[in-house]
Amino acid sequence: MKWLELLTVGGATLVAAVTVVVLYSLGVRLTAIAGDAEQASPGVKRSLAYICFGLCGVAVLFGLYLIIPYFSK
């Protein structure tokens, strides 16, 4: 039973951290592309980047929402 909890912690950590890192990395990547000199539509890339950053923030907030007992009651 306790192994299951341990597994939960491991799984939750993996999923949460990977989500945040992937979203943020995508954002960084897109910003980098948008900053390139010869670029067809930097505006679109940049807004996509901001969406990624935004989603990343939402993921963090959702994680906190799940943890704080005040909300889950």
Partner: peptide, 27 residues
């Protein structure tokens, strides 16, 4: 048990995340 496993879990996840972050941003 958490004392033994938590650093391992964190280490493993950090490893995967670092790999991912570098893979996604390498141009």
């Amino acid at each position: 048990l958490p004392a033994i496993f938590a650093p391992l879990i964190a280490g493993l996840v950090a490893y995967i995340c670092t790999r991912l972050a570098y893979a996604l941003t390498s141009r």
